[in-house]
Amino acid sequence: MNRASLDKQPHEVASMFDKVAKNYDLTNDVISLGQDRYWRKQVAAAVAARPGEKVLDLAAGTGTSSLPFTRAGAFVVPCDFSLGMLTEGKKRNPWLPLTAGDATKLPFQDGAFDAVTISFGLRNVQDTDAALRELYRVTKPGGRVVICEFSHPTWAPFRTVYEEYLMRALPPLARQVCSNPEAYEYLAESIQSWPEQAELAAMLQKAGWEKVAWRNLTGGVVALHRGAKS
């Protein structure tokens, strides 16, 4: 299995990410033209982790996305269902409490976290609604969620150019830096099939989240959604 299909069978997606774990962070930096660093800074600012808080970083991969929360003084649990990603993360930051878990059946108690976040991973979950409900379940009353995910540019001319990049330029570029470029063909297709910003906001509300809002980054290439648990 080199890539997952768009029905997102968990074993296929996990296997695909296992195979790209070693160079995953570098590849993302290259194909995003360095924008991924900016996006992750915006996630950290939106989560606004405080000393002593407990933060769940879902789809954390190698744990790179979790480091800003630890620097803020929070206790962060990086969680992912790719054992390959977690193994690579353990080599780099052995002190992180990297945890294996399925987004639709999280291995945590109700109300365990002050904040929950997932970056570029919700799109890969087979049942998005179930994942949003699970994030809600493990969040304390008064807690918050931040979701960073690829989305859809709002300006039509830019959207056309961006979609051309996804389908034509991204796979050849991935072949230069990635051992499993087929995984990035899936990436391009999954981005195109992902819901629009307003539709994802509605899904958050359906799962119980309140005060739902979003902000477009890089013209809508990425959207940052937020919500609160009453």
Rank of each mutant, 00 (worst) to 15 (best):
N2C: 03
N2V: 07
R3Q: 13
L6A: 07
L6N: 09
D7T: 11
E12Y: 00
E12V: 00
E12W: 00
S15K: 07
K22E: 14
Y24Q: 05
N28W: 00
G34Y: 06
D36T: 04
Y38N: 08
W39H: 12
W39R: 06
K41W: 02
Q42L: 10
Q42H: 07
A45Y: 03
A45I: 06
A46T: 08
A49K: 07
P51W: 02
G52L: 15
V55E: 08
V55R: 10
L56N: 08
T64V: 13
S65G: 04
S66V: 00
L67N: 00
P68E: 15
P68C: 14
P68Y: 08
T70P: 00
A72Y: 01
A74I: 02
V76Q: 05
V77K: 01
P78G: 06
P78I: 03
C79L: 08
L83C: 08
G84A: 09
M85E: 08
L86M: 02
T87K: 15
E88R: 13
R92S: 10
L96T: 09
L98Y: 06
L98H: 08
T99E: 05
T99K: 00
T104S: 01
K105S: 14
P107G: 11
P107I: 07
Q109N: 10
T117A: 13
I118T: 07
G121F: 09
G121C: 11
L122C: 05
D129F: 00
A131Q: 04
L132S: 04
R133M: 05
V146F: 01
I147N: 03
F150Q: 14
S151Y: 03
H152G: 09
P153G: 02
T154D: 15
W155K: 12
W155Q: 13
W155Y: 14
P157S: 15
R159E: 15
V161N: 02
V161D: 05
E164N: 14
L166Y: 02
M167P: 01
M167G: 01
A169M: 11
P171A: 09
A174I: 00
R175E: 08
R175C: 04
Q176S: 12
N180K: 10
P181D: 13
A183Q: 09
A183R: 11
Y186G: 05
Y186A: 15
L187T: 04
E189M: 06
I191A: 11
Q192P: 00
Q192T: 06
E196Q: 14
Q197T: 10
A198V: 09
A198Y: 02
E199W: 03
M203T: 10
M203Q: 14
V212K: 15
V212W: 10
R215C: 05
N216D: 15
L217D: 12
G219D: 11
G220Q: 05
G220H: 05
V222Q: 13
A228Y: 06
A228L: 07
K229F: 11
K229R: 14
K229P: 11
S230I: 01
S230R: 04
